[in-house]
Design a protein around this nucleic acid. Structure first.
Length: 434
RNA sequence: UCCUCGGUAGCUCAACUGGCAGAGCGCCCGGCUGUUAACCGGGUGGUUGCAGGUUCGAGUCCUGCCCGAGGAGCCA
């Protein structure tokens, strides 16, 4: 009985007899010799099968093997320059656990996006997709590791909420025992309550936006990590953000450098430059930059669109902070800039290479009077926010936080052209299957 | 919601100015001891998105609808 070894560890067993449990990715027959490409979720390995080296039953079973058939292969590990990855298994026996039906729809070749998304439950088996999902897991772990070791307490905020955080047009409504409730857009307001109990906190989970957005940067269900800090300012947000993002990129490079290059064709030299500090640009300076770069007509006070974000970010090798946005284009809870009521203590982090905004945050309005006025100006129902206003009645302090979009961050790190590949089962406008 | 492009075999795509519905891959059969999306020979495969219209004749032109992709606005 030989040892069951994950494909990723095969190199460490050179010269030894091992067992691989996986699925047939591809097969090439050459008369009395067969090449079996086997995937097991940890990697891809080539099995070489000579007719004279295996029992007749195994040879005949291999003859009938279809793509994605579940197989257990035994054999000796050998280094061979002709094998993809440098190692292969000299097969001595084969057991077919399940012979897949012969019409597996996804071939190792080009397919259209619509077709692949319709078969997402099978598409995720493709090595490229599996790699992205592994990177996602690393990104999530790196985020939690960094926050956990820097004094942040992980607190879960509700997914079902009674009211909108930022306007009702982009909320998914659900029936809550006959009353309307909404899927959360953000855990921020609850986190602002949590900091008074715990100091520094973060929530990390799915959020939902019913935006009719159909672009490479949008999902209707996406994940955000939202740190929030008591006794903190806008400057603290920028420092924490750059430390966190740099740590995440570093961890991905440490664990997945080879996969990023081999499976995703990612230019990792771009990622190696992502070290603190990141450049900081005020909104005023960003507008000036845009006007120099061909957007002469860009009006002060507008939020940036995708072309503007790209134009700004391509001036820098690292992610770039843009802070002090116009008050009019940000949410009601932003703190004022002293002496400049037209701008607020907000910040966005724009990823390089045109990936756009991956972080939005700022310092929160600390005074009851300002917050109450803003609620009115934004036409929000005060009743629903009474609990939130309490936070400014009992020990209000300067505080700040941000939200980092997981899918956009992964798309940038992996160099993908659409966020839909960064999550196993993306939820998009007009696509809920599978 | 708006703009642009598209829908032909299981997949990726051809089909000139309206004139016999095609190829590669897949799948099935046969061959090959070093394949890398192998190669060679044979076979299989169609309500051209749906409904109507024009025409001797429509995949091709016209109208409506459905579906998909890219982008805009909004956002992470």
């Amino acid at each position: 009985m030989s040892t069951w070894v994950p494909v990723a560890d095969v190199a460490r067993h050179e010269g030894h007899e091992i067992t691989i449990k996986g699925w047939l990715y591809h097969r090439t027959d050459k008369g009395k010799l067969k090449f079996l490409m086997i995937r097991d979720g940890t990697g891809l390995i080539q099995g070489v099968m000579f007719k004279k080296a295996v029992p007749q039953a195994a040879w005949e079973a291999a003859d009938r093997l279809t793509q994605e058939s579940a197989i257990v292969v035994r054999g000796r590990v050998r280094a061979d320059a002709r094998a993809p990855g440098g190692y292969e298994i000299e097969v001595t026996d084969l057991e077919v656990v399940h012979r897949a039906e012969p019409d597996y729809p996804i071939q190792p070749k080009e397919h259209g996006v619509g077709f692949l998304l319709h078969h997402r439950h099978l598409w995720i088996r493709s090595p490229r997709q599996a790699t992205i999902l592994r990177v996602r897991a690393t990104v999530k772990r790196a985020i939690c590791d960094w926050l956990d070791t820097h004094g942040f307490v992980n607190v879960d905020t509700p997914i079902l909420t009674p009211a909108a955080v930022e306007g009702t047009t982009t909320l998914f409504e659900v029936d809550y025992f006959g009353e309307p409730a909404y899927l959360t857009q953000s855990g921020q307001l609850y986190n602002e309550a949590n900091i008074f109990a715990l100091g520094k906190v973060y929530c990390f989970g799915p959020t939902f936006r019913a935006e009719k957005s159909k672009t490479r940067r949008h999902l209707t269900e996406f994940w955000m990590v939202e740190p929030e800090m008591a006794y903190a300012t806008l400057e603290d947000v920028m420092e924490v953000t750059e430390q966190l993002v740099a740590h995440v990129v570093h961890e991905v490079l440490t664990r997945h450098r080879h996969e990023l290059q081999a499976r995703l064709n990612r230019d990792v030299s771009r990622l190696e430059k992502v070290t603190p500090p990141f450049p900081r640009l005020s909104y005023d300076e960003a507008v000036e930059l845009l006007r120099r770069k061909g957007f002469e007509e860009f009006p002060w006070g507008e939020d940036f669109g995708a072309p503007h974000e790209t134009a700004i970010s391509e001036e820098f090798e690292k992610p770039v902070f843009v802070y002090h946005y116009p008050t009019q284009c940000k949410a009601f809870y932003m703190e004022e800039v002293p002496g400049r009521p037209d701008v607020c203590r907000s910040v966005d982090l724009l990823a390089p290479e045109g990936y756009g905004e991956i972080v939005g945050g700022g310092q929160r309005a600390a005074s009851l009077e300002l917050l109450a006025r803003r609620l009115q100006e934004h036409g929000l129902p005060r009743d629903a926010y009474e609990w939130y206003l309490d936070l400014r009645r009992y020990g209000s302090v300067p505080h700040a936080g941000f939200g980092l979009g997981l899918e956009r961050t992964i798309a940038w790190i992996c160099g993908l052209d659409h966020v839909r590949e960064t999550i196993a089962f993306p939820r998009m406008l007009e696509r809920m299957y599978p």
